[in-house]
């Protein structure tokens, strides 16, 4: 069940309160997002207030409280990417997937999020799908690229 996996993660970190961020990261890797009941379970197991866990989960942008798709698309809209037309890339992806940024496709294949600078401005405009970085994009490259992902 769900909670068995969480018990394993908690045991891996010896139930230490100070490891809360690492624990949340591992849970996010497991489920792709942080489910509400799981956060409550973690707070109960570690003996810390639920409000503290929720504070951490909302403080960091890596953590998502909404369900995420199998593949996460991060569109960079940092200064360099913005100037090189990152907005147009975002619009193209939004049109292709028929969703707005910050939401998930109906078949839960992709979720789309906007980020500020992924740290390779020479490749601008950049998007990141899961762990792969795609640089020097044009609108024409988007559709064939998205088809590669299952």
């Amino acid at each position: 069940m769900k909670f068995n996996k969480i018990d394993k993660i908690l045991e891996k970190f010896n139930m230490q309160k100070s490891q809360l961020i690492s624990i949340l990261q591992d849970i996010q890797n497991e489920f792709n997002f942080l489910p509400m009941e799981v956060l409550g379970y973690v707070a109960e197991k570690l003996g810390i207030p639920f409000s503290l866990v929720y504070h951490l989960a909302t403080f960091y942008k890596t953590f998502s409280l909404k369900r995420r798709g199998r593949h996460l698309i991060n569109v960079c809209l940092g200064t360099a990417c913005h100037i090189r037309g990152g907005v147009r890339i975002l619009e193209k992806i939004e049109r292709d997937l028929n969703i707005k940024s910050g939401s998930i496709t109906l078949d839960s294949k992709f979720s789309l999020e906007v980020v500020r600078c992924v740290g390779c401005c020479s490749l601008a405009p950049v998007i990141r799908i899961d762990d792969d970085t795609h640089g020097r994009l044009t609108q024409g490259k988007i559709t064939p690229m998205l088809k590669k992902y299952e």
Binding site: M36, L39, G40, I48, P49, F50, S51, L52, V53, Y54, H55, T58, F59
Partner: peptide, 29 residues
Amino acid sequence: CVRVCNEVAGIGAIGFVNRGKKLKVDTPF
């Protein structure tokens, strides 16, 4: 309020949520 709830009452019912300009005091969810 967050500190009094955590440190004096020892309950932790409310806490900070979000950050930056969206920061507010709220209960979880």
